[in-house]
Amino acid sequence: MKPVAFEYCRPDTVEEALDLLKEFGSDASIISGGLSLGAMLNMRLVRPKALIDINGLGELADIKAGDATIRTGTLIRQAGAMEMPVLMSGVPLLAKALPYVGHYQIRSRGTLGGSVAHADPSAEIPLTLVTLSGAVTLRSPGGSREVPAREFFQGLLTTDRRADELVTGLTWPIRRDLTGYAFEELAQRHGDFAITAVAAEATVAGDGSIADVSFGLGGVEDRPFVATTAGFVGKPATAATASDIANTIAETVDPMVDLQANADYRRQLVRVLGARVLTAAFNDATGQQEAA
């Protein structure tokens, strides 16, 4: 179980990294944490001509908090993110999702951007970004662009990133007032790829009705996505509505089938976890109302 021979490149600046991407294109693999890529390299599933190690790019490990968003550099480690009060209080859904990511020994090295660029359909960080309507910043020699997360993930391990682009950062919308957040997932073992992961952001109006709801699903289809819930805006933010939403969405999904679970079970988890998570998000929002 040893990788194919590859050239090792450790750029000192983003520009150098982009030059390398231009040179190698899809023959390069970009390594940040390497928790998924390392395994695929060792199994020779991925066979790059060059391994571009971006861990030297300190400029990608920064965090910038604005009024409405927080921008995290791609290299921020998952465990590091959990220790950043600005990020954890500003993006509570991420704070709730991160403990589910892999294990202690994975989060210590795995990066926020790496997980997004890898685009595992069950991964928590992409699901959170999609649920919150965040964005992914990509840089190429031609410049920089920002892609809404909901458009970035295109399928199994497949994203909108072009071969000459580098994911440089993620943009997280800061928590909104009177808005609740919840995250839950179920896996066969603690820390495994989720069979189904569910995230919710819900804003509740003064009359207790749903003002806005975002219901994200991971591990169900080939990418994380937000279900269409517009029809439920205006309905009471109650457990009953939460169940209604989850049950309705469960009928519309087209779940993956793998060794761990079939489509029926994934649909069932959308119902059960969905109802729980939406209820928790409603309660979180209502609680803020009462506190205010």
Binding site: P121, L157, F193, M256, V257, D258, Q260
Partner: peptide, 11 residues
């Protein structure tokens, strides 16, 4: 790659 086979085939 079992986890991904079904999805890749569909894809």
């Amino acid at each position: 790659g079992q986890r991904m086979l079904g999805t890749v085939t569909k894809l």
